[in-house]
């Protein structure tokens, strides 16, 4: 029985299909992650402003995104936008939009946290040395902010990659969906295929996320001393 299962994996172009599915996952994640990081840094900086209006608006945005399950957001964009404005947004684009909205909010909060965690006397003592405003940011504030931020940001990125599995539900055929299709097709010929296919999908997620979290661990260790 077991050998039948593994055969399904190697049969025809199943492996290629899985990799294609993985590419969809990676493509969506990558786009959303890159945009989220850029927007999130800007958002985080805006969030540290003392202006009550920007404070309230960014707070509402963050809370809204946090309260809404990602799935609801996906449905809201994919089905809701189509209904409300009579426009059709593809599943993949909807996914990028939702993950960018989510990633930007979370990234913004991480950036805000990293920025305000730099003690005030770091600014004072570098100013007292005669460093100019730009130099203070370049040599003192940004390096310390990045050290705090990067491990947290990487954690967010892996969370985003994993959560993309939800987009199956708005019809995007990504790696998990391909896996399910293959399993369906071989339900009677090879009942044990499910184990092999899901195992492979697990492995594929692993090879995407593992190097990222490995990198984070490495950076953390390097900055420890």
């Amino acid at each position: 029985m077991q050998d039948l299962g593994i055969r399904v994996l190697l049969e025809g172009n199943n492996m290629i299909r899985l990799l294609d599915g993985l590419w969809v996952t990676v493509r969506i994640s990558l786009l959303a992650v890159v945009i989220s990081i850029v927007m999130g840094i800007l958002l985080g900086m805006v969030m540290t402003l003392k202006n009550p209006v920007t404070k309230a608006l960014t707070r509402i945005y963050l809370e809204f995104i946090r309260i809404m399950p990602q799935l609801v957001l996906l449905f809201l964009i994919y089905f809701g936008a189509a209904k409300a404005f009579n426009i059709h947004i593809s599943g993949e684009l909807s996914a990028v939009i939702v993950f960018t909205l989510w990633g930007t909010a979370e990234m913004g909060d991480l950036v805000r946290g990293a920025l305000i965690s730099i003690p005030k006397h770091q600014y004072d003592s570098s100013a007292a040395l005669g460093l100019t405003g730009i130099q203070i940011y370049r040599y003192i504030i940004i390096p310390q902010t990045l050290r705090r931020l990067i491990p947290l940001a990487i954690n967010l990125v892996t969370r985003m990659i994993k959560t993309t599995s939800l987009i199956v539900l708005i019809g995007v055929v990504e790696v998990l969906k391909v896996g399910q299709q293959i399993i369906e097709a071989s339900r009677y010929t090879a009942p044990s295929a499910a184990l092999w296919i899901y195992g492979t999908v697990f492995f594929l997620y692993f090879i995407v996320c593992f190097p990222i979290s490995k990198l984070s661990g490495k950076l953390e260790k390097r900055w420890q001393n």
Binding site: H121, Q122, D124, A128, L129, G130, T132
Partner: peptide, 22 residues
């Protein structure tokens, strides 16, 4: 005169340990 110029002539040490940790 810019403060960054003036501060070079005035050294200051604070109560808190304010070395740059990185």
């Amino acid at each position: 005169t810019k403060w960054s110029q003036i501060r070079q002539k005035i050294g200051m040490v604070f109560q808190s340990y304010d070395l740059f940790p990185h």
